[in-house]
């Protein structure tokens, strides 16, 4: 990791572009209050202003709110929910996967059947139900998204742990008297991280999509501006005012695309053996 890592990462040009886009989104989220100090919910212009009007760069919506301000502020929610729900999903998924993969046998069977329970229910439906039951707030949406996104991570971690636990260095750790916790955390986990990180970067992208879809359905946090909400609110006037849904849509598209590109780059850099050939 470090110089070699960056070299390998930079070799994938798409990943560098993705990282640049992602950096822009992060900057927008961080400096949202500086760029658009006013609340994105405030009326800033006449309603239905097309893009490039005097007081609204990307136009205004049905209530005269600035679309550009909404996008910049919406970036916060998208990133926040994307990252924190992935963090929670990682915590649940990797923990369960590690225990299942390391112990195998009955423990593995029990945990995997539990995981399958979640996998058989369609992701989005479950998320909708959870949010509907627990009232939409940022915390609840995050948890709902985490609950539906951990199973693939658990499966991945389980596979990695299963493959690594029979490796000789793990057995050597057992014979030198290390405890199970130490072996899982110090010996196996660091060796299984690369594919998990790659997969997590893609989970962030899915989480952002999920959050947008929930907001689109009106299940977003009513107190924060989000891209999904903007599209949802504009869908009735999509034929008269395309820009209201177009720009937030582009924001989602670019962010998710950037995350996927970065994920691919991470894959090339972290798993050099799996990197697709022919690029060198």
């Amino acid at each position: 990791m470090s110089r070699d890592f960056w070299k390998a990462f930079a070799r994938n040009r798409g990943a560098v572009v993705g990282l640049a886009i992602l950096a822009l989104v992060v900057l927008a989220a961080v400096f949202a209050n500086l760029i658009y100090p006013q609340s994105p919910w405030d009326m800033a212009a006449m309603p239905f202003q097309p893009p490039l009007s005097d007081d609204a760069l990307l136009g205004s919506d049905t209530l005269g709110r600035d679309i550009a301000a909404g996008i910049v502020h919406g970036a916060r929610v998208s990133l926040l929910i994307g990252l924190s729900s992935t963090a929670v999903a990682l915590l649940i998924g990797v923990t369960l996967g590690a225990i299942a993969g390391y112990h195998g046998g009955v423990v593995d069977d029990a945990i995997m059947r539990f995981t399958e329970l979640f996998q058989t229910i369609p992701n989005f439906v479950l998320a909708v139900v959870l949010v509907a039951i627990f009232t939409p707030s940022i915390a609840n949406i995050t948890i709902a998204i985490a609950v539906v996104s951990w199973p693939p991570l658990a499966r991945l971690a389980r596979g990695e742990f299963m493959a690594l636990r029979s490796r000789e260095f793990v057995q050597a750790a057992i014979t030198t008297g290390q405890g199970t916790g130490t072996i899982i955390l110090r010996q196996i986990l660091p060796n299984s991280l690369s594919p998990i990180i790659v997969s997590a970067s893609l989970t962030v992208a899915t989480a952002i999509l999920l959050e947008s879809s929930l907001s689109f359905l009106g299940l977003g946090d009513p107190n924060v501006m989000s891209w999904g909400y903007m599209i949802g609110a504009a869908r009735t006037v999509i034929r008269q005012a395309w820009w209201m849904s177009f720009f937030p849509g582009i924001a989602i598209l670019l962010t998710v695309l950037a995350l996927n590109l970065v994920g691919e780059g991470l894959n090339d850099a972290l798993n050099p053996k799996l990197a697709r050939k022919g690029r060198a």
């Binding site: 000789e168 260095f169 057995q171 060796n191």
Partner: peptide, 15 residues
């Protein structure tokens, strides 16, 4: 009781 393993490439944790 200690053990020495067969494969020197697999028996040392690369990290």
């Amino acid at each position: 009781i200690q053990m020495i393993f067969q494969d020197p490439y697999a028996s040392l944790n690369p990290r």
